[in-house]
Design a protein around this nucleic acid. Structure first.
Lengths: 367, 367
DNA sequence: TTTATTAGGGCAAACGTTTGCATTACACTT
DNA sequence: AAGTGTAATGCAAACGTTTGCCCTAATAAA
């Protein structure tokens, strides 16, 4: 019952032409008379001919396929990035293969192998939290596979990069906390090896120093699982809370971690911002609906994906690799909400802290 | 600089063997002496030979590639489904191509064409909100492309289906609202053509009837964009609110729509659950953090993706199509929270409604 | 010793395209 | 009349695998 798809050979036979003439007529190029072109095209359309992409791929060594490797698809931020990639790819007639590694180095290696064997034309890559060295990536790149790094990048690969202004985002958020009167600001962040972790830490430290405040190492906690390992996150918070002088504010350094952190503080009955102010990197769609509404540093995730895909496709389609690669830095947006409202005197924190901050927070930049 | 990957031919030449011997030795099968097999395998490993997947695909007419077509990647629910699919595919050594259609029928058609031309071995499909007829799908299926439908399905294609217990989920949520004392329950839902819309509506209606309550058509509002079109959603809510007897509770029928709806009620200063109780289908990770915490009907999204992918791979790999197809119905979980707390007498609603329900809501089923 | 069997391996076609290099049939220059 | 140019098309090899069939030797059976 299954009709085999029609091929160029079938068309050639039916029309009494050679394979090559049919092939060229379909492409429209080369020197084939208009009459023949029409004939072939009409026949092809009528029998709804579809070129066999596997054969084309084999011949052209191009699959019109982009590979994505990242840590977690259901992460708000990455889901939006993927959406941006898909969108750009669609416009340029590419298809997108997706893999996730759950922050595992081994899994990242496997995924990259799978993708490159399967002949993607290029790779969009955000490093896993567990990535120790990048020999496996370097090898692919050396073999000529075009790669664009996004979000979690490395300097060791000489190629395009698309990242957010992590340092600036963390700096602004920290400055905001300082301006609101918080002084003991802790930083809860992801795996220490990641570029985003380093850059955000840098912004946090810069802001403290700009206010002549010391940077305390015990106020900086890393979570290797980036919020996917609940006990790990709980421990980190517990340690912060049990310090002699516990922090009065928390700057959180990644999407999952921010939500998880909110959740843990909530469960433990810690008043936000009464006992602990909270701001974090997050692309959650509705932070204004949380209780209290959450101050976030938001990234242009969709745009990041879109730009990365466009750069990659450009890389794939140009004949010679460019002499110089670019690093696009996308702005971040600090969206100020109640979770970083000015702290109340201790006597007041017994009220309804989530809903009555002393001063109304600014409108912030939202959506 | 770019090293061409090594091929079977190269190995054959270096070892003084024929292509076929090398090919068979690598596969381990057929009648090749152990000595030769070892020789070939060692050489291949040493020079890290990788089979050219395009060539294999062309020859075998298999790409070990699954295609996904759905409406929106950043949707919490679908992001989890994709994650489940990726996970199952990885275990069986398949790769996954992803497309989204933003509820557009035309875009769905294009995406399916792209995927099928590009030789995916099978398709995981959730219909777009705008899908008018399914001729395009039927055609692919008739041509022998294995398809598994998930979430938004149709009976018109005879194949496996994986869905949630939408009717039961809506029924339980509606019953819960009724038990909490709400009587004027409206239903805000997605595109009317979708199976999930029909099934959830059915559950809602059944629950009302089971309580001897009438079903009012003006309490049922469809949003074709499923929450992606904000004005559309606002209008629907406005219309409900301006009724002579406006509803006192809202059952919302899809992920995006639920969050959007919460957002709109929040912006308009409508007290939840004081003026309007709210329950909805949602896979948002932290509904307990919203203000008020949100009663949700949660689906096993990851599992849905995993099962669908496994069924599809089974379909692809078995020689003969099964005589009978199955429809897996996954349970939904009603997670009861404050947004559906028992309504207060009018005099009380001026207080702090989000934080002080009259009776504590049950623990619900969470995570 | 002859014959059958088997193990081990090679040949070449095939999958559907693409493309460099003919080839043919004209028309146009010298 | 011989040569040049050009438009339209065909031939066949190539991309890297897989696989049905054939070949050769060696061994086992008769």
């Amino acid at each position: 019952m299954i009709k085999q798809p029609i091929t160029i050979k079938d068309i050639a036979r039916s029309l009494g032409l050679s394979f090559s003439t049919v092939s060229r007529a379909l492409k429209g190029s080369y020197k084939i008379s208009d009459a023949t072109q029409q004939l072939v095209k009409d026949y092809a359309a009528k029998h709804n001919y579809r070129p066999n992409l596997m054969a084309q791929s084999l011949k052209n060594k191009k699959s019109r396929c982009l590979g994505i490797a990242l840590s977690s698809i259901p992460n708000n931020f990455y889901a939006e990035v993927i959406s941006g990639i898909e969108s750009a790819a669609y416009n340029k007639d590419y298809l997108v293969m997706i893999t996730q590694n759950d922050e595992s180095y081994e899994r990242e290696i496997k995924n990259l192998e799978n993708l490159s064997w399967r002949a993607v034309d290029g790779l969009l890559l955000s490093l896993s939290g567990g990535t120790a060295d990048i020999a496996h990536i370097q090898r692919l790149h050396d073999h000529g596979l075009p790669i664009v790094l996004f979000d979690r990048v490395t300097d060791a690969i000489n190629t395009h990069r698309v990242i957010a202004d992590n340092k600036g985002g963390a700096f602004n958020a920290t400055r905001h906390l300082l301006e609101r009167g918080f002084r003991r600001i802790a930083h809860l962040t992801g795996a220490p090896g990641l570029s985003i972790t380093r850059e955000r830490l840098q912004g946090y430290q810069d802001a403290l120093r700009a206010h002549q405040l010391p940077v305390h190492d015990h106020y900086i906690k890393y979570c290797n699982a980036c919020g996917n390992d609940i006990p790990e996150t709980e421990n980190a918070i517990r340690e912060l809370l049990s310090l002699a002088t516990p922090p009065d504010a928390l700057l959180v350094g990644s999407d999952r971690l921010t939500m998880r952190c909110f959740s843990i503080l909530h469960e433990q009955g810690i008043q936000i911002p009464g006992q602990m102010a909270l701001a974090g990197f997050s692309n959650f769609s509705s932070p204004e609906l949380l209780s209290p509404s959450l101050t976030t540093i938001r990234q242009s995730a969709f745009e990041m994906g879109k730009i990365a895909a466009e750069l990659l496709i450009d890389l794939i389609e140009r004949k010679r690799p460019p002499s110089t690669f670019e690093t696009r830095i996308l702005p971040t947006h600090l969206c100020i909400r109640h979770s970083t409202a000015t702290p109340l005197p201790a006597s007041c924190t017994a009220g309804t802290p989530g809903t009555s901050p002393v001063r109304s927070p600014g409108p912030g930049i939202y959506n």
